[in-house]
Nucleic acid binder design. Structure first.
Lengths: 243, 243
DNA sequence: CAGTGGTCTAGACCACTTT
DNA sequence: AAGTGGTCTAGACCACTGA
């Protein structure tokens, strides 16, 4: 087992994930942890950490005393809301090959909710970038990002805005986007939103209203992303806490 | 440190959580893991497991090389969708004191989507229970549960249906509900739903369409829960996978 | 009662941040 | 250079399942 690059645990996770999706386990039963550890030449702890991640993803179910098993229902989950990072990657996980169109890049005064989220002074100015993610000719996600003016250089062009925003922060502001706090809001689309997403106004949709932070807790971006429910259905696994 | 009942890790987690919410750490800085381990008389591994759970909840942020810190933004998260179990508990976490009204208990043929979710034969019959969760006089959640006929005894009464459904399965069917696979669907309320939730028809809302399974992967229940967005806002933390 | 996953320990070394 | 969290090991014992 090679050991450079990703952690051992991650390598074991990927190895097992691959065997799972390729249906490489008899009757969906995964070998005992001690056996996997011996086979892969790692400690049982490492195997357990890898299995824990797979269980969290929903790919497997562990039953104390009985064994570990493939979870067909969980394998259908493509959108792990709490581990969703860039929309590009999420769409790729759905088997899409996404493209991006930048609709607008503009600077102006912040709306009040944006000023609060970004902890700006009252007269704060923000850079606003609006883009749409497409699968073939179908618009799937409409995203608006608000960033405090001055954090990014002035000469942001469409090329820059088209990529994932966390890459933009790393490259242009030397800042690391660490996590988002997101609200899941049900809306009906207004005329402008409906036009951008190529559906009729009044269609229900999910809006993710969220703020992105650095590891230090500094808000970097306030964003709204509207998902076309008919093309992109959020699906999650719910279980009891503390497991 | 006492050691009966919950696991050591869980005890440490609760202890630290309490100190966090009571603002018991200077400048939001949490002591080093080795220090906590010595202070609490447990191994560093146990402390780390407890901290991992808190980080996952959003209560803290860990920064390699720098330290572990309280996360004020994360502390506002009350609805961890992927760890949500009973609506009663979720509402209590919001500081509500929920009550339940059972609207209907009836037996009849399954709708097609229910029959598929529960893997029933085409002519499958299901027991359907509808209930509303209230906070004071405000209805907050409208839930409909469909259970295969015969799984539960015939004489289910309102008393039985009012409690959490996983308790019903344990008590009446000796079956353990282990996890749900849930879809997050945006809807606009129809007349009946709107009346039950005491809002006007056409209001947007989140519908959680979900199937509950045993650890063995047998579907036990197909359910729809509609949340009043103005009273109960789903809020989650998003981070990069594999952390 | 044999086998499985669950918990916990003690310790080593590494990667990273801060001073 | 010192201190912090991140990874990994080897081993012990417990709780639970199923034949």
């Amino acid at each position: 087992m090679i050991t450079r690059g990703p952690s051992l645990t991650e390598q074991v996770r990927q190895h097992l994930k691959q065997r799972i999706v390729e249906d490489g386990f008899e009757e969906g039963r995964i070998p005992p942890e001690t056996e996997l550890a011996a086979e892969l030449g790692v400690s049982r702890t490492t195997v357990r950490d890898a299995l824990s991640r797979l269980a969290h993803e929903g790919a497997i179910v562990r039953r104390q005393g009985a064994g570990t098993f493939v979870n067909p229902a969980g394998l259908r989950i493509k959108t792990r809301l709490e581990e969703m990072w860039s929309y590009e990657d999420m769409l790729r996980d759905h088997g899409f090959t996404p493209s991006v169109e930048v609709l607008a890049i503009e600077t102006g005064p912040a709306r009040q909710d944006t000023a609060e989220a970004l902890q700006l002074a009252d007269d704060g100015t923000v850079l606003t970038m609006t883009k749409v993610f497409y699968e073939d000719d179908d618009p799937v996600v409409l995203t608006t990002n608000h960033v405090p003016a001055g954090l990014l250089p002035d000469e942001i062009d469409e090329q820059d805005a088209a990529g994932p925003i966390f890459e933009l922060f790393e490259r242009e502001a030397n800042a690391q986007l660490s996590y988002y706090v997101s609200e899941v809001v049900p809306i009906v689309l207004d005329g402008v939103q409906a036009t951008s997403l190529d559906v009729t106004a009044g269609t229900p949709a999910i809006s993710l209203d969220e703020t992105g932070f650095t590891g230090e807790g500094t808000p970097l971006v306030h964003a709204q992303s509207i998902l076309r429910d008919d093309l992109l259905r959020l699906r999650v696994m719910r279980r009891q806490a503390g497991t």
